[in-house]
């Protein structure tokens, strides 16, 4: 029995070693620049602090139709459902996107949604209703719920195993909404397509 165990320990070690080596190449290199920053010295940032930054960053990688007369000099970011960001999204109010100033608005439910540039669909929102409400309008739908990009939001954020924020893009959905997502953003994303679902 002991010999068997030893053999298995060996296998596990082998697996472990086999696993450690390749991953060691890729990640520390990329992570290093950040390590110099005070950010890493502190406890990890809150999830929605970062997700708010991502939402802001997304705005800079998307082109809305040129003839869109929405908001005048304001850039409207809406949140439908229970806002998970707390104060974090609010910090971007007033920041600029394409010379427009960000204004943040919250909508309790899909029926309350008003036209905006970006709409964050909170996890408890009724997605089909939001999709119906924004159909054929140039609204960038952003979400952070598993499977929602396939269901029609254009950008869906998720955490990978190392708890880093990642996002997937449903390019078809963006095209349908006449939104142009720039290649630089597409490169960083996992691309998904519409889920096969009966009407």
């Amino acid at each position: 029995m002991c010999r068997n165990l030893a053999a298995w320990c060996g296998l596990i070690m082998a697996l472990g070693l086999g696993g450690v080596v390749p991953s060691g190449h890729a990640q520390p290199l990329q992570a290093q620049p950040l390590q110099a920053q005070p950010l890493q010295a502190q406890p990890p940032p809150e999830e929605y602090d970062f997700k708010a930054r991502f939402v802001y960053q997304f705005c800079n990688f998307v082109d809305w139709p040129k003839d869109l007369k929405l908001g005048g000099k304001t850039f409207l970011i809406g949140v439908v459902g229970r806002d998970p960001f707390g104060k974090h999204l609010e910090r971007f109010a007033g920041a600029a996107v394409d010379d427009k100033k960000i204004v943040i608005e919250r909508f309790p439910a899909a029926k309350d949604v008003k036209p905006c540039h970006v709409l964050f669909v909170a996890a408890d929102a009724d997605l089909p209703a939001v999709l119906a409400k924004t159909r054929n309008q140039p609204v960038l739908l952003v979400s952070d719920r598993s499977g929602w990009a396939e269901k029609g939001t254009m950008i869906n954020m998720y955490l990978d195993e190392q708890k880093r924020v990642r996002f997937e893009i449903n390019h078809e959905a963006a095209k349908r909404a006449q939104l142009n997502i720039r290649a630089n953003l597409l490169k960083l994303a996992r691309l998904v397509k519409d889920a096969p679902e009966a009407p």
């Binding site: 990329q30 990890p44 940032p45 809150e46 970062f50 930054r53 955490l159 708890k163 880093r164 960083l188």
Partner: peptide, 9 residues
């Protein structure tokens, strides 16, 4: 941003 782990909510 994508390299930084976060504390999940």
């Amino acid at each position: 941003l994508m390299q930084v782990p976060v504390a999940p909510a």
